[in-house]
Amino acid sequence: MTVAKLSITNLQAGYGDVQVLWDISLEVNPGEIVCLIGSNGAGKSTLLRCISGLVAATSGHVVVDGKDMTNASEAGVVSAGIAHVPEGRRLFSAMSVHDNLLMGAYLRKDKAQIAEDLDLVYSMFPVLAERRRQDAGTMSGGEQQMCAIGRGLMARPSLLLIDELSLGLAPRAVELLFERLRQINKGGVAILLVEQDVMDALALADRAYVVNRGRVSMSGESKVLAADPAIQEAFMGLA
């Protein structure tokens, strides 16, 4: 049996006295695309933030490649091969696209391979190459999201956490981004995706978890969930 890239068991976390995550358990296998769906405030972003060390877990375990990484430092998580593309993109808006991408490789020392990965990102998103000298904050939302994903890839992760990929973006840009995620995944990178557009997310992902008020209420193969009447009613407006 292969070791899961990421395995979370009975995770509880929150902000101060407010508990957000209750007994969350989930797994992401190497090379897999998993999506998290659920309404606003369900705790999806908190879960990602907890994985990358931004929010402390109060109990439970986060295991990466068989190694316990509960409450590890942010740098430790990045070194373990997990890159986080945060909600709202969080670029360094007054820095060039090029510097933003390089910052993604902040913890890496292998200069030759960093240059190689940079070329890879530029070939995946040619518009970033055109705008490499431009301040990141001056680009369109879709381009900024490309830059954020590129920055995540520059850490050379084996698991990419992506929070709200399509939020506020033009449908055309979203389509392209989904296409690129597929391509990234084919390159062997597992993806844990939080996405509001449930139909597209389920079409992309191998498996999905439904998060409801901080708990996993359903999980399974995307195809099965997409056909589930309860999901269709709750998230797709079909009934």
């Binding site: 360094f92 820095m95 910052m103 902040y106």
Partner: peptide, 15 residues
């Protein structure tokens, strides 16, 4: 400089 522009993003990248 990264902290100045966006501290949480800098943390996410391992700064």
């Amino acid at each position: 400089r990264c902290i100045q522009q966006n501290e949480s993003a800098a943390s996410i990248l391992g700064v």
